[in-house]
């Protein structure tokens, strides 16, 4: 098993090299003729107004808060899913309670309007 992780590491390194190589190649062979107008930010052809790095209202921030909670909770379900067969009825009832709490959380968020487009 440890050796398998070694393989995964080798694969990741080979992949990273493969991905970085083209950047080196274009740095060597791509033509360069930049001038200030070319380096301007594209904004449909008119002169750029201001920066994009300004305050921006991310309208789905409530979704993201709910997401963090749910994503962590779903991770808890994976170990159970693997042993569900041998766990039997007791494990099933326990996970059902967990699932019901999870669902209640979703219903709560829904009723509170967290899943609305604010």
């Amino acid at each position: 098993m440890l050796l398998d992780w070694g393989y995964v590491a080798v694969f990741a390194i080979v992949g990273a090299i493969l991905a970085a190589l083209p950047l080196l190649v274009i740095w060597l062979i791509a033509p360069r003729s930049a001038y200030p107008q070319k380096l301007e930010t594209y904004e449909s052809g008119v002169p750029t107004i201001g920066q994009a790095w300004s305050q921006f209202n991310v309208r789905y921030y409530l979704f993201s808060l709910v997401f963090v909670v749910f994503d962590v909770e779903i991770i808890y379900l994976y170990p159970w899913a693997v042993v569900a067969r041998s766990g039997g009825a007791l494990a099933f009832v326990e996970i059902l309670i967990f699932l019901v709490i999870l669902t209640l959380g979703l219903v709560y968020a829904w009723r509170k309007g967290a899943l609305e487009w604010v």
Binding site: P22, A30, P31, T41, Y42
Partner: peptide, 18 residues
């Protein structure tokens, strides 16, 4: 695409951009 000109926009964060 390899032979296209490569440039980084003046306003961009160079490192993150690449």
């Amino acid at each position: 695409l390899i032979f296209k000109e490569h440039f980084v926009p003046a306003g961009a964060d160079r490192l993150v951009y690449l």
